Amino acid sequence: MIGRWIFVREAGMTRRGWLALAGLALLALIVLLPLRLVLGMAMPENVTARSVEGSVWDGRIADLNVGPLPIGTVEAGLEPLPLLIGRTQFAVSREGFAAKASARGLSHASGTIGLPDGLGQLPVTSLGFGDFSVAMDGGQCVSAEGTLSLTLASPGPLLPGPITLSGKARCDKGALLVPLRGAQGMEQMTLRIAGDGRWQADLTLSGLPQETADALRAGGFDARPGGIGIGTSGTF
């Protein structure tokens, strides 16, 4: 009797019913798709994390790093609308920082990231984003907007305190270029990031007292017209 009932139920399933059942199974698979799996396929190799948990739509990434930049532990989820044009984009956020990230770059980033290890030879303590966006294509910067800011710990004992510089981002000869200036215009830095992740930063300080300039030169700065400066570089 039980076998006959199962046979009748199967015989009664219409083609539309089987398609609906298959659609529900596919929907369940998509909803439960692990974030770890999609993130591993969609993000560049320099993106690392201690752990990735949850579904692709609502997950958590612990100790996220983009190259040497420690983003921290973030909530992350795949955005459905960009999928309609074939683009994989994630919304990531934590207290004090939010952005949209894809393999092509970053968009609408706002907030602050601490840099405990500095930036090369520069004692940069934090990196700030003001509605910052950059898009790369074929290893070339194709669009950039918004602002970046850097806070440097005092580079010498004779300077009064931290230095904050900020500037507008733009593309220049295929690289991301951000000319930054301090509030008084006496501190200037040029930050250039190429599509392959190589970056260069050049800091110039002007208008310093002679004894302060001499102390900084002894610490690695070099003399420049109107001031002193130091350059450094690395790879993201």
Rank of each mutant, 00 (worst) to 15 (best):
I6S: 09
A25D: 06
V178G: 05
G167A: 02
E95L: 08
A11W: 11
V38R: 03
R87I: 15
A11R: 08
L216S: 01
L24K: 04
A11N: 09
D58E: 13
V52W: 07
L180A: 03
T190Q: 14
L24T: 10
G96V: 07
L165C: 01
T147R: 12
D63R: 04
H108K: 11
M13S: 11
F7S: 11
D202V: 00
G185A: 11
L115H: 01
G54Q: 10
A223D: 04
S93I: 13
P80M: 03
G226I: 13
G54S: 08
L83F: 02
D214L: 10
L21H: 08
V124G: 11
R15E: 04
L26E: 01
P225R: 01
D172G: 10
G207M: 03
S133R: 15
S233Y: 12
L177F: 08
G219F: 02
G105N: 09
G118N: 02
G118A: 04
G114N: 10
W199E: 05
G111V: 01
D214N: 14
L29H: 06
G128R: 12
A91T: 11
R181Q: 14
G220P: 01
L84S: 02
P68Q: 11
L78A: 05
L37V: 14
P123K: 04
R9L: 15
V8K: 11
T164R: 14
F90A: 07
A175H: 09
L115D: 00
V74L: 08
Q210D: 14
G40M: 08
R60S: 07
S149E: 14
A223S: 12
A175I: 05
V124P: 06
H108T: 12
P157G: 06
L19H: 13
L203H: 04
